[in-house]
């Protein structure tokens, strides 16, 4: 039936429960390296919503607008991650949950997805979980699939389009290196989305007013059904053994002269390096 006229049979009134998982990250556009000390200069570095999660929020809100339902944003982080959740509300999310506890500190992707999955279970009803394809500070792309696995639900990563949603199924396009795949799945499902999927909206004045008054649910260890051995640093199989600044590249060679002379020199270099 693909490609036929009925292929975009959007069902309104499904009332989906959509969960969007987000992360607060340092704005890397602001992160600079001090050339003398070779250390991070993070003066004035703002915390923002992971850029890829902005597409996840937008897709959740668009889906809700189309088929009805509710969007809940979920994050794990320190108390100040509330700001990210409030921003998500200003962009159209309905409710927000923050998982915050010192016991969560030091979580790697295993423990993070374990904790977020416990948060999702706490919300009980859900049809679709949306995550950004990866976080800009870690770039691991592991937490989305991790949550799905902990919850024992299917996943589709790198989704670039939601083609259709029906009562209990969904059809999406998954981006690959060569093109894309069309995948159908039962619900509940977890998807991670790429930036091709939409253009995130700007916040709205009413959304900002709503977010200002929004009450964020904060859950800690005792609120979740979790085992301490799976949390935080303890629950994380990976350990950071060493952190170092990458060796600076050797000073480059400056090529000077007239445009003609430069072109001649470059042509020789290219011939050699090619």
């Amino acid at each position: 039936m693909r490609g036929s006229a009925c292929s975009s049979a959007w069902f309104s009134g499904i009332d989906m429960n959509i969960i969007v998982c987000i992360k607060q990250v340092p704005e890397t556009t602001e992160v600079r390296i001090n050339p003398e000390t070779n250390t991070l200069m993070r003066e004035g570095v703002k915390s923002i919503i992971n850029p890829f999660d902005m597409y996840a929020i937008e897709e959740g809100v668009r889906l809700k607008e189309k088929v009805g339902g509710k969007v809940t944003v979920l994050t794990m982080g320190p108390p100040q991650a509330e700001a990210a959740l409030k921003e998500a509300i200003s962009l159209g999310a309905d409710e927000a949950v923050l998982l915050s506890d010192r016991a969560f500190a030091g979580s790697d992707t295993w423990a993070t997805s374990y904790t977020l999955a416990a948060g999702v279970r706490k919300l009980k009803e859900y049809d679709l979980i949306i995550c950004g394809k990866q976080a800009s500070d870690g770039d691991t792309a592991q937490v989305g699939p991790g949550i799905a696995t902990h919850l024992d639900i299917p996943q589709v990563t790198y989704v670039k389009k939601i083609e259709e949603v029906k009562d209990k199924t969904i059809r999406v396009e998954r981006m690959t290196e060569e093109g894309y795949e069309v995948i159908e799945s039962s619900l509940p499902l977890l998807i991670t989305v790429v930036k091709e999927i939409n253009t995130p909206r700007m916040p709205s004045l009413r959304g900002l007013m709503r977010s200002k008054q929004a009450k964020i649910t904060v859950l800690g260890v005792k609120d979740l059904d979790v085992e301490a051995t799976h949390l935080g640093l303890c629950g994380s199989p990976t350990q950071v053994a060493k952190i170092f600044t990458p060796p600076a590249r050797p000073e480059g060679e400056k090529i000077e002269g007239t445009a003609e002379e430069i072109a001649v020199k470059l042509a020789e270099i290219l011939k050699r390096e090619k």
């Binding site: 790697d108 992707t109 295993w110 997805s113 374990y114 870690g138 770039d139 691991t140 792309a141 592991q142 989305g144 699939p145 991790g146 799905a148 696995t149 902990h150 996943q155 990563t157 790198y158 998954r174 981006m175 690959t176 290196e177 994380s236 199989p237 990976t238 350990q239």
Partner: peptide
Amino acid sequence: ATSIGRSLISRIAIKIKAGLTAD
């Protein structure tokens, strides 16, 4: 660290509780 590999290995690592380092 391909679109297939990243999806697959994340699921495996969770299931068997193993440490996974990306990229």
